[in-house]
Design a protein around this nucleic acid. Structure first.
Lengths: 238, 238
DNA sequence: ACAAAAGTGTTGACAATACACCCATGT
DNA sequence: ACATGGGTGTATTGTCAACACTTTTGT
C-alpha cells in the first residue's frame, strides 16, 4: 500500500492521471515529546533505497485537495485528517527524468490513532524525529524545511496544534508540544493562564491515569467554541 | 503585449511549454486611498469580452517563480516587483476545455512607477477598485478572494504594505493604506507611536510639497534594518 | 481667523513576564 | 521523606486604546 506512492517508480502514461504534477505530503506526528515526520523508502526505480516524502499522482477527475486526502488515506488509513496545502514547488530540474511540478501538502495526525503498516516488497515507512532526518530525494528536504517553517508560523496563529495530540490531554502536554514545535522554553504558570484565558478548552471530569505523580486534569479542544469566537473577532495568538 | 497572456486564447501545443499548468497573477495597486487590482479583458477565444486575472503558461525550462516574474514583466514592464506565491488552484472543472491547474501569485506594485499600456486588438487592461470587481472568468473570483484574505493576513505580519506606496510617504498615507486593506479605522496617535516604535522607518529631511495644510514629514522604509531586527528575533505585528 | 491636517501627552485597562510558593501522589 | 510534576498567587513592566490637546501652514 505504501510503495505505490513512490512517485518515481514509473513515469505514468495512464491517461486518467495528470502526468506533469504530483502531490507530496509532509505528515507530522508528535510522540513522547518529539515532533516527527513520516517518510517512506523507495523500493524501486531510480531512487531505490532512498527516503522521501510520501506522494503520488493526481487523478484527472479529482480536485487537488481530494487527491491529497485520498493519498493520505491510502497511506495512513486515516480519515478526517487536518490537511492544508503548502504551495507548489516547481524548479525545472527538481525531478531528474523530466519536468514535474509538485504541490506540497502538510498534515497533522494523532499518533495514537495510527500504526504504521510496513509497505510491500522493499518499501518501508518510518517516523523520523525532526532533527534526525536523513538525506531526502529530489527537493524533498526543501519541501520539508518549508513546511516546518510554515508549521511554526501557523501554530502561533491558529489552534491547530491540538491535531497532533490525543483527544484528551493535559495542559503541560500541550505546552510541551508548543515548546517542541517552536523550539523555545515556556513558563508553566503563564502558559496555563494564557491558554485557559482564551476559553477554547473544555475541562473534563477526568484525570491522568497511571502516572507516578499527582495526576493532572484532562482537557479537550472545542472547535465549535473556536468558530464562534472567531466570528466575534477573536484572534488566536501565541 | 497584454493579450498574449489570456490563457484561454489557444490551447497550447507548444512543446516548450507545460500544457496542464498555468500561472495567474493578482496584481495589487494603491491609488488615491483605494486598493485596486489589475484585470485584463480577453480579446479572443471562449471568454471573449470577459475580465480575468492576467496569467500565462510556464516554459519548460524556467522555475515557476521565474515564470511569474517573466509574465509580470511582460505585462507591466516592471522589474524587481514584490511577488509571492499564493497556492495552487486545482478543481477538476475550473477550466472548461480540459484539466488545467493554475498556480496563483500575488504582486504589490507602486502605481507611480507604472502606467498601463492598453493591449492590442480588443484586449484591455484596467485597474479595478477592490469593491467594484466585475464577474471574472473561470475560478478567478475565488483566486482573488483568497489573495485578498491572504494579503490582509500578510500585511499584519510582515512589512509588505510599503511595496504599494511611493518610496517616500507620510505616516498618514501609511495608516490610510492599512485602513483600506484591513477595512478598519485606526487612531492617528496610536498608529504613529506603534510604527515609529518599531524603528523600521527612516525619517527624511523632507516634507510634503504643495499641500494646502501643514506639510507632513516624509519617511521611507528601510529593509536592511528590518532584516537585522528579524535576525534578533523582532516580529512585525499589526 | 479659521480650516485642515500634523503631531504630542495623559490616562486607565489589561496582558506579558518572572518568579516564589504550596499541593497531591507514587516510590 | 523526597522527587516529580500539578497548580496558585503576585509584583512589575509594558502595550493598547481612547481621547483631549497643541502646532503649523495655506487660504
Amino acid at each position: 500500500m505504501v510503495n505505490n506512492l513512490n512517485n518515481d517508480v514509473i513515469v505514468k502514461n495512464d491517461p486518467s492521471v495528470m502526468n506533469a504534477i504530483t502531490i507530496d505530503c509532509v505528515i507530522f506526528g508528535f510522540d513522547k515529546g518529539s515532533l516527527e515526520v513520516l517518510l517512506i523508502q523507495h523500493g524501486e526505480g531510480i531512487s531505490k533505497g532512498k527516503w522521501g516524502l510520501p506522494g503520488g499522482w493526481i487523478n484527472k477527475k479529482e480536485s487537488i485537495d481530494n487527491a491529497a486526502h485520498r493519498l493520505l488515506y491510502e497511506l495512513t488509513a486515516l480519515d478526517h485528517i487536518y490537511l492544508e496545502q503548502l504551495k507548489a514547488f516547481g524548479n525545472p530540474d527538481r525531478f531528474p527524468l523530466r519536468r514535474v511540478i509538485t504541490i506540497g501538502y502538510y498534515a497533522l495526525i494523532k499518533r495514537e490513532d495510527y500504526s504504521i503498516q510496513p509497505g510491500f516488497t522493499a518499501s518501508d515507512a518510518k517516523w523520523y524525529k525532526i532533527n534526525q532526518i536523513p538525506d531526502l530525494i529530489y527537493d524533498h528536504s526543501e519541501i520539508l524545511t518549508y513546511s516546518l517553517k510554515h508549521l511554526r508560523d501557523r501554530v502561533r496563529q491558529a489552534p491547530i496544534g491540538f491535531n497532533l495530540l490525543p483527544e484528551k490531554f493535559t495542559l503541560l502536554q500541550l505546552m510541551h508540544l508548543y515548546e517542541e514545535i517552536l523550539g523555545i522554553e515556556m513558563d508553566k504558570s503563564n502558559f496555563r493562564r494564557k491558554i485557559l484565558h482564551m476559553k477554547l478548552l473544555v475541562a473534563l471530569d477526568e484525570k491522568q491515569q497511571d502516572v507516578s505523580h499527582r495526576a493532572a486534569k484532562l482537557y479537550k479542544f472545542d472547535s465549535e467554541i473556536y468558530t464562534k469566537l472567531t466570528e466575534k473577532g477573536f484572534n488566536f495568538e501565541f
